[in-house]
Design a protein around this nucleic acid. Sequence first.
DNA 1: CTGAAAGCGCTTACAG
DNA 2: CTGAAAGCGCTTACAG
Lengths: 364, 364
Amino acid sequence: MVVTKQVGIKDVAVAAGVSVTTVSHVLNDVPNTRASEQTRDRVKAAATALGYRPNRLARSLRTQMSEMVGLVTEEIATTPHAGQIILGAQEAASKRDLVLTIINARLNPRPRVGADEIRALIERQVDGVIYATVFHDVVSLPKEMNSVPSVLIGAQDRAGRIPSVVPDERGGAASVVEMLAASGHLRIGFLASAVDVPATRGRYAGYCEAMAAAGLTAEEMVVAAEPEASGGYLAAGQLLAREPAQRPTAMFCYNDRMAVGAYRAASECGLRIPDDVSIVGFDDQAPIPESLFPALTTVTLPHYDMGAWAVNTLAEMMVERKQPERVSSYPVQLPCPIAARGSVAPPHSAGGHSRTPRFNGEVD
Amino acid sequence: MVVTKQVGIKDVAVAAGVSVTTVSHVLNDVPNTRASEQTRDRVKAAATALGYRPNRLARSLRTQMSEMVGLVTEEIATTPHAGQIILGAQEAASKRDLVLTIINARLNPRPRVGADEIRALIERQVDGVIYATVFHDVVSLPKEMNSVPSVLIGAQDRAGRIPSVVPDERGGAASVVEMLAASGHLRIGFLASAVDVPATRGRYAGYCEAMAAAGLTAEEMVVAAEPEASGGYLAAGQLLAREPAQRPTAMFCYNDRMAVGAYRAASECGLRIPDDVSIVGFDDQAPIPESLFPALTTVTLPHYDMGAWAVNTLAEMMVERKQPERVSSYPVQLPCPIAARGSVAPPHSAGGHSRTPRFNGEVD
DNA sequence: CTGAAAGCGCTTACAG
DNA sequence: CTGAAAGCGCTTACAG
């Protein structure tokens, strides 16, 4: 690594034969400061010739805006989807010429949530902080967050003061029931989760609502189990063991992991997917949907969008230098679109038994 | 958010009745500057009383060390394991009181790799940059990286100038063969990948070497296919279709996705895992290993460790202000330890046919 | 043992 | 239209 001395604004000024003031003005396009076209050109030429890059630290110190936003993730960096939140936040930040600094707050050893992490960020003068959490209803934020614009991902602020965003689990669930009903299904089973987290309630509620709205009966159609493949196997097995006339023609699973168990159960019952049963998952958890045959139709979580939403609303708060208006409208719920793949069909669409592919299209 | 004026070093100085120099000295424990115990106490008391937190931007400007390191990830933020690289880097950074700033470089729209991203980081005065890539042999780095200490994850610098770290794919593969051989397996199949990336070659080489070293013949034991479940199904099917005497008693799969196909093939052949065939994967790609029954024994990738290694060697370069000595020793290869779960047993260990669990232990 | 002052590299009133 | 100077909040020779 070559240790060329960094070129500063002073160097550019000398090279262009003007003052640093002028250099700063033209490079930053300061309004109401009409430098002649000539000087502008000279300055710009000098800057590019020298490869001048402003020192943002110095600028930040002066302007009192670091143009950095901090992302503290609460044990989230470990979860499969965290990457998408980070990516969404980072790309939104780049578009605004902001930079994203991340810190993970391990929940394990400490009771008090993320206070140290937030302080570290604040010492660095971040202009705002995003606190990302998973699987929470309501959360108490460290008071450190009151001294800087903040937003919350994946939960709601207990104090109700901080803008927040969560997935619209309920809407996502409702939309799959609607889709299934629209394609003719009348008996739509739901493999519910036996673990009580907000997603459990939201997805269940969405299912129930949409069933009712479609005039379908959810009664006898939901069975709860562990939200794992084994639980899905059990629950689906229970539903599928019924008389054909009582048996669901479609099964909506709390999550993709349960869906893999449901696939297994269907196959053991000699039922083909989607011809004999349609199956829908939730989460779009790689690599599950694509590695099932047929590929699993499932509901996508808006991780990327939540990350982007967070920096965008933060950016607004930063410029407006004030709290957003209607705090009561939080948490914002972002849509969970369906990723349609191959596991849904109208009930008995095939009209008869076609040849059953054994594993993947390429086989046989 | 309360807009309390930030307390500065001057405020502390006034409160303690000393100069800012003294405050700085005692708070930073500057050597050779013996302030009386009394003043030290007074200063510290004042600082905590006021809740003073030094402005690191200002400090950085003065010391010319930002204590920030930049992580540019090349399309990696999308991959499942990226989170672990980021986490490893972040936690190592925190331990050194460094902060991690990340930028994703989308490969798609741009030919030139990451130059803009690195410039953005350099403007921010990062003390070093980590460039993380996946699935590469050798890579040409943007020349911007020459102006700041840098390290590379997941590839090797074409110019051979930059320290780099990669997983020891070969060693990982060899260790599974050794494990399998040690437990008595003589016919160890390898489901190779038909896609030519460095991991393909490394894992295959490790397999071959270890087979030879164990006096086992790899001949006829390897079949290549797409590195997906479907490919694994095909390849395993081919191996398992043989006469029992020729049939492998263990199958080592290029990756976990192929292993899921291998499970399927084994089950269709009426073979129990691990009693009749042992199966080992590679990648430890969540949630595959835990969602298979029995849970898949597989090889772990050192993503976390590579992230940590990167900031640690970067930190050394930063303090030493020089290139590390023996550049020729790069890339460093980090071990890929085996995660032992339930899919390996000695050949025909059971001595007879025990009851076959249908799906997961909880079933039946 | 402690403090006054310079300076890190910028931006920005303010004056000319 | 352009520039000299102050100042962002620290650290660090240097002097006393």
